[in-house]
C-alpha cells in the first residue's frame, strides 16, 4: 500500500461513517415525520387559524332557474321538476363528485316529515349516479346521535340502496372558519372534510314551521354544516340564516313541500302537524325556493326577516316570480 492511501477502514473511520449514516437516517425520518404531522388532530380546533369557509358550487349557467312540480309522488315530482329545467344532466356531468346535504336532524320516522324524505333522497342519488357522477355522498350534522338519525329516518338505507355513500360527521370533519363580513360565523367550526374533492352541492330540505325562525327550509338546512355549540345562534336566528345564505351557494336545492309541517316545528311529532301541500321546488336560487316555500305555510316573505335580509344582500330573489318558475304537473308515467 502506498503512503497516503487510506486503505482498509479503521474502526474509528468505520464508526464515524456509520454514525453519520445513522444521523442522516434519523434526520430524514424526523423530517418526514414533521412533514406528515397533522398539527391539528381531529377535534382540536383551539389553535387553528380561521379559514374562509365559503362553499360556492353555483354554476351560473343560462336558462331556467326554478321549477315547481305539483303532485304526490316525490320521486316523480323530482324527475318532472328537473326535466323542466333541462334534466339532471344540465347540472351533473360525468365524473362529478356530488355532495348532498339533507336534513337528518332528528331520529324520527319519515312519516313525521321532520327530515328529508328517504324516497326523495334515494331518487336524487340515483339520478346523480345515472348522470355519471363518480361519487355521491350524503351528509348532515345532527348533533345528537347521527347514526340513529340516519337510520330511523330511513335516509341511511335509502342512500345505500341507491348507490350513494353516507358521511357521518365527527369532530375532525370541521375546520374553524370566518365568513368574510359575518358577525356570527367567525372563528367557528364549519364542516369541511366531506367537501374535499366535491364538484357539485345539492341541498334537500322539507318545508317546516320553526318556532324560532318562523320556517325551516333550504337556507336553514345549511345550519347542519355548523359544528360546535351552535344552539347559541338561536338567539339571532335570522342573522345566522342570513349568513348561511352567504356561506353556501349550492348547485341547486330541492325544497320538498309534498307535505308541510304547519305547526310545532321543527320537530313536530304528530301527523296532525302535517298538511298535504303537493309541491316540490327545484331551484338554483335557495332564497327564491324558500320565498315560494313560505307560501305553503301560509306566510309571506315579510314573516321571515332572514329572507328579506338575504334579498337585500343580493343573495337571491325574494320575489321568486321574477325567476319565472316553470310550473309542471307531475304524474307517474
Amino acid at each position: 500500500m502506498k503512503e497516503g492511501d487510506i486503505g482498509p477502514l479503521s474502526p474509528r473511520r468505520e464508526f464515524l461513517k456509520r454514525g453519520l449514516q445513522a444521523a442522516a437516517a434519523l434526520a430524514a425520518t424526523g423530517g418526514m415525520g414533521a412533514w406528515l404531522w397533522n398539527r391539528h388532530p381531529p377535534g382540536d380546533l383551539s389553535t387553528e387559524k380561521a379559514f374562509d369557509p365559503r362553499k360556492d358550487f353555483a354554476m351560473g349557467i343560462e336558462g331556467p332557474r326554478m321549477s315547481i312540480a305539483a303532485g304526490q309522488d316525490r320521486a316523480v315530482m323530482l324527475r318532472t321538476a328537473l326535466k323542466a329545467l333541462g334534466g339532471i344532466e344540465r347540472f351533473i356531468k360525468r365524473g362529478d363528485r356530488v355532495l348532498i346535504k339533507v336534513n337528518a336532524a332528528f331520529a324520527t320516522p319519515a312519516a313525521l316529515a321532520a327530515t328529508s324524505h328517504p324516497a326523495l333522497v334515494a331518487e336524487i342519488v340515483r339520478l346523480c349516479r345515472t348522470a355519471g357522477a363518480s361519487s355521491v355522498v350524503v351528509t348532515d350534522n345532527p348533533i345528537n346521535d347521527p347514526a340513529s338519525c340516519f337510520e330511523l329516518t330511513g335516509i341511511g338505507q335509502a342512500v345505500r340502496q341507491s348507490g350513494g355513500d353516507l358521511f357521518l360527521p365527527y369532530a375532525g370533519a370541521f375546520r374553524k372558519g370566518s365568513l368574510p363580513g359575518a358577525k356570527l360565523i367567525r372563528n367557528w367550526p364549519v364542516m369541511q372534510e366531506p367537501f374535499k374533492g366535491v364538484t357539485k352541492l345539492i341541498g334537500v330540505a322539507p318545508v317546516k314551521n320553526h318556532q324560532r325562525a318562523g320556517a325551516s327550509m333550504t337556507l336553514k338546512n345549511w345550519y347542519g354544516l355548523l359544528g360546535g355549540r351552535r344552539n347559541q345562534f338561536h338567539q339571532d336566528i335570522d342573522g345566522i340564516i342570513t349568513e348561511l345564505a352567504a356561506l353556501v351557494r349550492p348547485t341547486f336545492v330541492i325544497l320538498d313541500g309534498t307535505q308541510s309541517m304547519m305547526t310545532n316545528g321543527p320537530t313536530g311529532g304528530s301527523l296532525a302537524d302535517l298538511k298535504d301541500t303537493h309541491a316540490l321546488v327545484v331551484s338554483t336560487d335557495p332564497v327564491a325556493a324558500d320565498a315560494f316555500g313560505c307560501t305553503l305555510l301560509g306566510k309571506t316573505v315579510h314573516d321571515l326577516p332572514y329572507l328579506i335580509r338575504a334579498g337585500e344582500l343580493g343573495l337571491g330573489a325574494v320575489d321568486y316570480e321574477s325567476l319565472r318558475p316553470i310550473r309542471v304537473e307531475a304524474r307517474a308515467s
Binding site: S135, V137, F150, L152, G156, L166, F167, L168, E193
Partner: peptide, 16 residues
Amino acid sequence: AHFSPPVRVAGALALG
C-alpha cells in the same frame, strides 16, 4: 389524494 369520506364512516352504522 383520493380521500373517500365513506371510509371514515365504515362501521359507524351499527344501528341496523
